[in-house]
Simulated assay, not measured.
Amino acid sequence: MSRIDESRDFIPMRIAVLTVSDTRTPADDRSGDTLVERLTGAGHVLAARGIVPDDRAVIAGRLREWIADPAVDVVLSTGGTGLTGRDVTVEAHRDVYEKEIEAFGTVFTIVSMQKIGTSAVQSRACGGVAGGTYLFALPGSPGGCRDAWDEILSLQFDYRHRPCNFVEILPRLEEHRRRK
């Protein structure tokens, strides 16, 4: 089972938070606030924060900007993971992924089932990697953001988490580009 190895030092990740919404503003972005509170409370660094409309090209463009920024290790987006016509965040994420972390969606569904039952089928939360950056598309609800962070991401972004975590493999995400 997973555990925290106290003999290892904590390594803070630099995490950007992107809210995808046609209606949210910085004054009422509860899901973005939830993620910022969680990640900074855990000792990570808020690298950037923004709000973009539910527009696939705009979302993908912002993701690409942050992927290209060496000061960003992780992008967490919130919103646009549902089933309606304006929910295009998952498609935008997949437009930029080099590799999808397929198990993230599965594990998120398992966590959600414990909290909201079969309503979990309505979320298309996903994760992937591009340009040495982790990217996760989370639901637009504060509860969904809390569940993803508290039950999955807080552990995977903790270098002390055993038997393995995302932090320890971060330097190797682009090793294929260094080979000659």
Rank of each mutant, 00 (worst) to 15 (best):
W66Y: 12
D69I: 02
T34V: 07
A125F: 06
V45A: 00
P53H: 13
V88L: 14
T106Y: 11
F108K: 08
C126E: 09
E91M: 09
W66D: 04
E91Q: 14
T40E: 14
T81W: 10
V88Y: 05
G82F: 04
M113F: 15
R124F: 08
H93W: 04
S119N: 13
D55V: 09
I59F: 11
I101M: 15
V45I: 12
V45Q: 13
D73Q: 04
G41R: 11
V88T: 09
T89I: 02
G79F: 12
E98M: 06
D73M: 03
V107Y: 13
A103T: 05
I67R: 09
T78Y: 04
R38D: 07
A42T: 02
V52W: 00
R30P: 01
T89H: 02
D69F: 11
V111K: 09
V96N: 06
I101D: 01
A103S: 15
G61T: 02
I116A: 08
T40V: 06
D33Q: 15
A92F: 06
V36N: 04
E37H: 11
V111M: 15
E91L: 10
I67M: 12
D33L: 12
C126M: 12
G85N: 13
G82T: 05
A120M: 08
L76A: 04
C126L: 09
T40A: 09
S123Y: 14
V45H: 13
R30T: 07
A71M: 05
R38N: 12
V111D: 10
L39R: 05
L63D: 02
E100Q: 12
T89Y: 00
A92K: 02
L63C: 05
T106M: 08
G105N: 06
D95F: 03
T40M: 10
G85D: 12
S119R: 11
T89Q: 03
E37D: 14
A47N: 02
A125V: 03
G50I: 00
L76R: 04
R62S: 12
G32W: 01
